[in-house]
Design a protein around this nucleic acid. Structure first.
Length: 813
RNA sequence: GGGCGGGUGGCGGAAUGGCAGACGCGCAAGACUUAAAAUCUUGUGAGAGCAAUCUCGUGAGGGUUCGAGUCCCUCUCCGCCCACCA
């Protein structure tokens, strides 16, 4: 008998599938559609690891499974090739990003083929193709025309190593998300997208999508919606508006705090305090974010020497400056209520400011004022006419009073800021805007898109705050689209996330020329039914893509406003020592070496079997032997010549077969791939264990069904088996074109079942009885059984708990 | 500090409130072999016993239940996310 030789059959079938275009996808209206998408990768490393395969193998299994279930499946792949990662990689290699990318793409693609993925490569896209970024630019103009793109000068996160500004989402712990350098702030004129205008919809629509709760929560926290009140405090003829979510505590406001960067600081500071305040604000400016964080929230601040009036009680309170108040949230100023806010409490204690209690705990709490801060809601005291009201009632009443008197207004506040989209880097889609001395900032005419990114040899960022493109007059100098006069192009490029915010739409009609996508095709394919990738994009890509989708929906370009119906995050694969796989540590395991040793099918199966899909897990070099052994056993079981045959185990195995079909299908749908594989292993073990006690009809049926169930998981070996053993000459030549096996619920139930016997709650054994045995009958059998008789000697039965088909529990006196 | 997960053999992990440890790795013994690898068979939570069996056992302690890895409370340890957002 021929041995299982993956090296021989795998490449053969990969070629065959490609030649016969098995995975070419068209709009087939006779079938339900299923759009199964991976996060498209950055081709910024030289090679994929087995960690990447944890994403691509399961989606491939789902795609194949859904095809066998009769769905028309769209399963495409493309490259997110603009942006910092690709450019940094190219600079490191000292080659042009375009060349680095085409090398990497070629290798990734080879690796994806090597592991037997079923992508429709005719739909491959690359975000750096002018035919692609033309539409990235078109969408920029769409946002601009809808009032959602604007330029503003502001203090922005600046990465001194990447030499560009960064979005808020791209700063982690005060460090650049790409290179981990400490970020600083820099004042520059930048382009923003007004994502805040969509904050509420981005928040509330989370309720209607099937995403991991963890990711939804992260988005909710990121958006950070809170309802509150803007209240003005008076200082001479000036007013200082503050934002609060606790209007009920306003009578407890014993001082006011401004952020050090607040524009009013200079105006209101008293002459005695001027020097000290200036020293403090200058010191704050020099601090990096890391410095601020490392101080462990020890409060710092200075008195301005000025006072303002709380309009609700006409009391005068001092104004301080402190860096625990952020300029960028609310109004950059707060009313401090030390009795009922932790931070204000700490500040008041440190600087010996007065603390006034205005909220009493309702029953259940003991007030520990003034030793401790009470931040919960309660009943008002020391609050004039509002005394006795609950926090909720008072908040509403006070808000009404404030609005009536024109002292302020209700306000919904978000933590999320607008999306900073400009990058002072070369490798991105140029922002399609033109600056004209006469006409101001003018969009590029749609007919002139794309604004091509020139191929430069010197594209290193200068650090001047201007993009390398600004050094190329041939790019910069142009004519104004409005007046025809001399004008300059915008030289900033778009954040790479702009490209990935709409790519899922390009796949439905990747070669369409007249528009970003064919509307008809989006109606058939969108939204994406299943989207799979790492959890690290929770608040970046996944938020931006939702935002773009809603903008396009509002512009009547598409008919859905959430792009990804169901989202799943795969767990990361770590090196065998539990550390991250990385090139610098030299512990990256590639699919290439693994396929060479064990075959692609064994790799695929192990990727699923290694552990729960969403869980981070360490690669085990030896574990994969198990799946390879399984495939050897499976192969041998198919081509083994039968020796003898009975039929004594037929009924049991048929039941098991039906059970297995049910369980494997359900597990795949629930992303429980590890137990799906375990179930298949168990099934084969059982067939092999009973092979001499099975009729050849049942044996053959089991093997054929097993082959079909294995087909999505290990497509090469099952294809070979199918062709050799079960294939006919029909049009459906491939095992992957067969129907997923069905099961019969009635056959799953065995006639004889195992009943667990417990005495006083302790398991003492099992008995095999007929399925529908009643309690009385079961009791009789057990009492007559030698095994159990001894437990009943000289003891009375007090009570019996009987769960049919499961358990019988005798409670004895 | 806040939020969300999670602690089960030597290891990865299974387990609608109903035989804890499926499946796999590893390990041990045996078969095959001159030998090794591969393969096959058997065993493999701890303790006691020749054995049938018995006792203990899912981070710690308590509770609910005929019955708890699973539900409730208290504690503890680990991981991730957010982190002065008024």
């Amino acid at each position: 008998m021929e041995k299982y030789d993956p090296q021989k059959i795998e490449s053969k079938w990969q070629k065959e599938w490609e030649e016969k275009k098995l995975y070419k996808t068209t709009q087939d209206k006779s079938k339900p559609k299923y759009y199964c998408l991976d996060f498209f990768p950055y081709p910024s490393g030289a090679s994929l690891s087995v960690g990447h395969c944890r994403n691509y193998v399961p989606t491939d299994v789902i795609s194949r499974y859904k095809r066998m279930k009769g769905f028309n499946v769209l399963h495409p792949m493309g490259w997110d090739a603009f942006g910092l990662p690709a450019e940094n990689d190219a600079i490191k290699k000292n080659i042009h990003p375009m060349d680095a990318i085409s090398q990497n793409v070629a290798n990734f693609k080879r690796q994806l083929r090597l592991i037997g993925t079923s992508y429709d490569w005719e739909r491959e896209i690359n975000s750096t193709d002018p035919s692609y970024y033309k539409w990235t630019q078109w969408l920029f103009l769409l946002l601009y025309k809808r009032g959602l793109a604007y330029q503003a000068v502001a203090q922005q996160w600046w990465c001194p190593s990447c030499k560009t500004v960064l979005a808020n989402e791209q700063v982690e712990d005060g460090k650049c998300w790409r290179c981990s350098s400490e970020v600083t702030k820099k004042g520059l004129k930048q382009w923003f997208f007004k994502i805040t205008a969509y904050a509420d919809r981005l928040l509330f629509d989370l309720d209607k999508i099937d995403w991991p709760e963890k990711i939804k929560l992260m988005q909710r926290n990121w958006i950070g919606r809170s309802e509150g009140l803007i209240i003005n405090f008076k200082i001479g003829s000036e007013i200082i508006p503050v934002f609060t979510t606790r209007p009920d505590t306003i009578f407890g406001a014993t001082f006011l705090v401004l952020a050090p960067e607040h524009p009013l600081v200079k105006k209101i500071v008293s002459s005695q305090q001027k020097a000290e305040v200036l020293r403090y604000t200058e010191a704050t400016k020099k601090k990096t974010e890391i410095d601020r964080l490392s101080e462990e929230r020890e409060k710092t601040g200075v008195f301005t020497g000025s006072y303002c009036i709380n309009l609700l009680n006409n009391k005068s309170i001092p104004i301080w400056v402190a860096d625990y108040v952020l300029l960028t949230y609310g109004t950059g100023a707060i009313m401090a209520v030390p009795a009922h806010d932790e931070r204000d409490f700490a500040f008041a204690k440190k600087f010996k400011l007065s603390i006034k209690e205005v909220i009493k705990p309702t029953k259940g709490y003991q007030s520990e004022f003034p030793a401790q801060v009470f931040t919960e809601k309660g009943k008002l005291i020391n609050s004039g006419t509002f005394n006795g009201l609950t926090s909720e009632q008072a908040s509403e009443k006070i808000a009404q009073t404030v609005e009536k008197n024109g002292w302020g207004h209700k306000k919904v506040q978000y933590k999320m800021r607008d999306w900073l989209i400009s990058r002072q880097r070369y490798w991105g889609a140029p922002i399609p805007m033109i600056h004209c001395e006469k006409c101001g900032t003018v969009p590029v005419a749609e007919k002139d898109l794309p604004v091509l990114l020139p191929r430069l040899t010197d594209f290193e960022p200068s650090g001047s705050g201007r993009s390398p493109l600004s050094r190329y007059p041939a790019f910069v100098e142009t004519a104004c689209p409005a007046c025809g006069g001399k004008a300059q192009r915008e030289t900033d490029t778009q954040d790479g996330f702009a490209c990935s915010s709409w790519y899922f739409l390009r796949f439905v009609s990747p070669h369409h020329e007249n528009f970003a996508f064919e509307k008809q095709a989006t109606k058939y394919w969108m939204p994406v039914d299943l989207y799979v990738g790492g959890a690290e994009h929770a608040v970046m890509h996944l938020l931006y893509a939702r935002f773009y989708t809603k903008v396009m929906y509002d512009a009547n370009l598409i008919s859905f406003d959430e792009p990804f119906t169901k989202l799943k995050n795969q767990g990361m694969i770590l090196a065998s020592n539990g550390r991250k796989m990385s090139k610098s540590l030299g512990n990256v395991v590639t699919p290439d070496e693994t396929v060479e040793k064990f075959g692609a099918d064994a790799l695929r199966m192990y990727e699923l079997f290694i552990g729960p899909f969403e869980q981070e897990i360490a690669w085990n070099d030896k574990g994969i032997r198990g799946t390879r052994r399984f495939l050897d056993k499976y192969w041998n079981s198919i081509f083994d010549t039968d020796k003898s045959a009975g039929d004594s185990q037929d009924r049991e195995i048929v039941s098991l077969k039906n059970k297995t079909v049910k369980k494997v299908g359900e597990d795949i749908e629930k992303f429980k791939f590890n137990t799906a594989v375990a179930t298949l292993m168990e099934f084969l073990n059982k067939i092999l264990g009973n092979k001499n006690n099975l009729s050849s009809k049942v044996k053959n049926d089991c093997r054929k069904t097993l082959t079909l169930m294995l087909a999505p998981i290990v497509p090469h070996i099952t294809e070979e088996v199918w062709q050799r053993k079960y294939g006919d000459k029909s049009l459906k030549w491939s095992v992957l074109q067969q129907n997923w096996p069905s099961y019969n619920d009635k056959l799953i139930q065995n006639e004889v079942i195992t009943l667990v016997v417990q005495i006083n709650g302790k398991t003492r054994g099992t008995i095999a009885i007929e399925k529908n045995t009643e309690q009385d009958e079961a009791q009789k059998i057990i009492l007559a059984d030698n095994k159990f008789r001894k437990y009943f000697d000289r003891r009375k039965i007090k009570k019996i708990i009987f769960v049919p088909g499961r358990i019988i529990n005798f409670l004895l006196l």
